[in-house]
Amino acid sequence: MIHLPSGQNKARAEKVSLFVTCLVDLLFPEVGLAATRVLERLGVAVDFPPGQTCCGQPAYNSGFHRDAARVARHFIEVFENSGAIVAPSGSCACMVKEYYPKLFAGDPVWEGKARALSHRVFEFSQFLVDRLGVRDLGARYPGKVAYHDSCHLLRGLGVREQPRQLLRGVADLELVTLERSEQCCGFGGSFAVKLGSISEAIADEKIAHLERCGATTLTACDMGCLMHLRGRLSRRNKSIRTVHLAQILAGSNGVDRGETHG
C-alpha cells in the first residue's frame, strides 16, 4: 500500500499563496522549492504572487517605521486578494501577523487592510499541523536532528510543538533534545551586524549546546537564524549541517535534493 500523508484530503481543497521571504528568494531558493514540494505533494494548490519582495521587518526593528511601512504597503497590495498566505519563516509571518497592525495603528486605510491580512498568514509548520492536520509527510532523513525554536515563531506566534510533531513523523530521524532550545541564537536582524561580536558569542553558546546533544543536523523554521548559525559553524569549521524544516520534510530518500549551500 502506498503511504499517503495524513491530512491529504483536507489539503486537496486548499489554495495557498507562498510568501517565500526575501532571504529565501535571494539566498536560499532551495528552501522555497522544498516548501512548495511539500505543499504540492499534499495536494495544496500553491501560488507565488510574483510582485512580492520583503515584509519590511529589518526597517521596522531598526526603528525606521516610515521605510518599513513603505515596503509593508507593497506587501499588502501584493497579497490583498490572496487566500491563506504561507511563509517558511516564523519571523516574517510574525511581522505581518503581529506587527503590521501595530505599524499601521491609527491609519484609516492601512490598519484595516493589515488586520484583514493578519488572520490569513501562517508560518509553514503551523499551516501543515494546525490548518491541514498533517503529522506524517512520508519523509525520510537519517540522522540525529536538533530543533531550535526561533524567537518570533515561539514567542510571537506561539508555535512550539508543530515543528516537533512533523519531525517525529520523519523516518530514520532521531530528534534529539537541544538544551535551552528556546534561547535566542543571537541573530536579531540588524543586531547581528551592529553588535556582531555579541551576536557571535550568543551563537557560540548555541553551538556548544548543539555539540553537547550530539546532533549532526540542526533544523529550524527560520533562515535568519540558520544563516547566522551556519555562518558561524562554517567559520569555526564545524561539520554540523543546518537545514530548514521544509528541506527535511521534502526529502524522501534522505538526500535533501534542493540544498545548494552547505
Binding site: G32, T36, A192, S197
Partner: peptide, 23 residues
C-alpha cells in the same frame, strides 16, 4: 552593511538564480 557580520561568520553568496527565477 554586512562587514560587522563577516568578521566572525561566513556570509552566503546570492543564489545563482533566485526563487522567483526558478519558479
Amino acid at each position: 552593511v554586512v562587514s560587522g557580520w563577516a568578521s566572525g561568520r561566513d556570509l552566503p553568496p546570492p543564489a545563482p538564480r533566485t526563487f522567483r527565477d526558478l519558479w
